[in-house]
Measured scan of single mutants.
Amino acid sequence: NCLEGLIFVITGVLESIERDEAKSLIERYGGKVTGNVSKKTNYLVMGRDSGQSKSDKAAALGTKIIDEDGLLNLI
Protein backbone atom coordinates (compact mmCIF):
# COMPACT_ATOMS: atom_id res chain seq x y z
CA ASN A 1 0.00 0.00 0.00
CA CYS A 2 2.63 2.51 -1.10
CA LEU A 3 -0.06 5.09 -1.96
CA GLU A 4 -1.93 4.73 1.35
CA GLY A 5 -3.72 7.95 2.27
CA LEU A 6 -2.76 9.81 -0.91
CA ILE A 7 -5.40 11.55 -3.04
CA PHE A 8 -5.04 11.82 -6.81
CA VAL A 9 -6.84 13.63 -9.62
CA ILE A 10 -6.34 12.37 -13.19
CA THR A 11 -6.80 14.76 -16.10
CA GLY A 12 -6.24 14.47 -19.84
CA VAL A 13 -5.56 11.41 -21.98
CA LEU A 14 -3.13 8.81 -20.61
CA GLU A 15 -0.87 7.10 -23.15
CA SER A 16 0.04 3.66 -21.82
CA ILE A 17 -2.99 2.81 -19.68
CA GLU A 18 -6.65 3.73 -19.69
CA ARG A 19 -7.96 6.17 -17.08
CA ASP A 20 -10.01 3.38 -15.43
CA GLU A 21 -6.88 1.22 -15.21
CA ALA A 22 -4.95 4.08 -13.60
CA LYS A 23 -7.77 4.59 -11.10
CA SER A 24 -7.81 0.87 -10.26
CA LEU A 25 -4.04 0.85 -9.88
CA ILE A 26 -4.08 3.81 -7.49
CA GLU A 27 -6.87 2.24 -5.43
CA ARG A 28 -5.14 -1.16 -5.38
CA TYR A 29 -2.12 0.49 -3.73
CA GLY A 30 -4.20 2.36 -1.15
CA GLY A 31 -4.74 5.71 -2.84
CA LYS A 32 -7.97 7.49 -3.71
CA VAL A 33 -9.00 9.18 -6.96
CA THR A 34 -11.28 12.23 -6.97
CA GLY A 35 -12.63 14.35 -9.81
CA ASN A 36 -11.49 17.81 -8.77
CA VAL A 37 -8.34 19.36 -7.33
CA SER A 38 -8.74 20.53 -3.73
CA LYS A 39 -6.44 21.34 -0.83
CA LYS A 40 -6.59 17.64 0.09
CA THR A 41 -5.24 16.53 -3.32
CA ASN A 42 -1.66 15.21 -3.14
CA TYR A 43 -1.02 14.61 -6.86
CA LEU A 44 -2.47 15.78 -10.16
CA VAL A 45 -1.69 13.23 -12.88
CA MET A 46 -1.64 15.14 -16.17
CA GLY A 47 -2.10 13.39 -19.47
CA ARG A 48 -2.16 14.69 -23.02
CA ASP A 49 -4.71 17.44 -23.84
CA SER A 50 -5.38 18.12 -20.16
CA GLY A 51 -7.28 21.24 -19.19
CA GLN A 52 -5.51 24.33 -17.92
CA SER A 53 -7.91 24.97 -15.03
CA LYS A 54 -6.96 21.86 -13.04
CA SER A 55 -3.23 22.51 -13.43
CA ASP A 56 -3.69 26.17 -12.48
CA LYS A 57 -5.64 25.19 -9.36
CA ALA A 58 -3.05 22.52 -8.47
CA ALA A 59 -0.23 25.04 -8.85
CA ALA A 60 -2.08 27.57 -6.69
CA LEU A 61 -2.65 24.97 -3.96
CA GLY A 62 0.88 23.54 -4.08
CA THR A 63 -0.32 20.15 -5.33
CA LYS A 64 2.41 18.03 -6.93
CA ILE A 65 1.86 17.73 -10.70
CA ILE A 66 3.14 14.52 -12.27
CA ASP A 67 2.75 12.74 -15.57
CA GLU A 68 1.80 9.13 -16.23
CA ASP A 69 5.41 7.94 -15.80
CA GLY A 70 5.57 9.80 -12.50
CA LEU A 71 2.53 7.88 -11.29
CA LEU A 72 4.04 4.55 -12.32
CA ASN A 73 7.29 5.49 -10.56
CA LEU A 74 5.39 6.03 -7.28
CA ILE A 75 4.15 2.45 -7.31
Rank of each mutant, 00 (worst) to 15 (best):
N36V: 12
E68A: 10
Y29G: 05
R19C: 06
L14E: 05
D20C: 09
K54N: 13
E15R: 10
M46L: 13
A22E: 01
E18R: 14
D67K: 05
L6M: 13
Y43H: 09
S38P: 02
T63Y: 10
S50Y: 14
R19F: 10
L71F: 08
S53C: 11
E21Q: 10
I26D: 01
V45H: 01
S55D: 09
A58S: 06
S50P: 15
A60T: 09
G31Q: 00
K64I: 06
S53I: 12
T11L: 05
G12F: 00
A22T: 06
Y43C: 13
N36A: 11
I65T: 09
L61S: 08
G12W: 02
L14F: 12
D67N: 13
D69M: 10
T41C: 07
I26F: 01
E15L: 06
K57M: 13
E27L: 07
G70A: 08
S38I: 03
A22R: 03
Q52G: 12
K39T: 11
T34M: 12
N1Q: 08
G35Y: 10
T11F: 05
D56P: 07
I17W: 11
L6I: 08
A58L: 06
E21K: 13
E21F: 04
A22W: 05
D20I: 08
N73V: 02
S53H: 14
I75L: 13
I65L: 06
S16K: 15
S55M: 15
M46Q: 12
F8M: 02
N73K: 15
A22V: 13
E27V: 07
L3Y: 00
I75R: 02
S24K: 14
T11M: 09
L14H: 05
Y29Q: 07
S38N: 14
D49H: 13
I75W: 02
K57D: 11
D69W: 11
E27I: 06
A58V: 09
V9P: 02
L72G: 04
T34V: 15
L74I: 05
G62H: 07
L6N: 08
K23I: 15
V45D: 01
E15K: 14
A22D: 00
L74P: 02
G51E: 15
N42Y: 12
S50K: 09
S53T: 12
G5L: 03
D20N: 13
I75Y: 03
G5W: 02
T41K: 01
K57P: 07
K64L: 05
G31F: 01
M46H: 04
L72R: 12
R28D: 06
C2A: 04
D56S: 12
D67E: 05
Q52S: 14
G5N: 09
L61V: 08
K39E: 14
I75F: 08
T41Y: 05
D69F: 10
N73R: 12
L61T: 09
N36P: 01
K57A: 14
L71W: 01
D56M: 10
V13A: 13
G5T: 00
T63N: 01
S38T: 14
I65R: 07
R48S: 08
V13R: 15
F8N: 05
A60N: 07
K39R: 12
V13M: 13
R48G: 05
E68K: 11
I75E: 00
L25Q: 05
V45G: 02
M46F: 05
A58Y: 06
L61P: 08
S16C: 08
D20G: 11
K40L: 09
A60D: 10
C2K: 10
L14C: 05
V13I: 14
D49M: 10
L6C: 06
T41G: 00
K40V: 08
E68Q: 11
E27P: 00
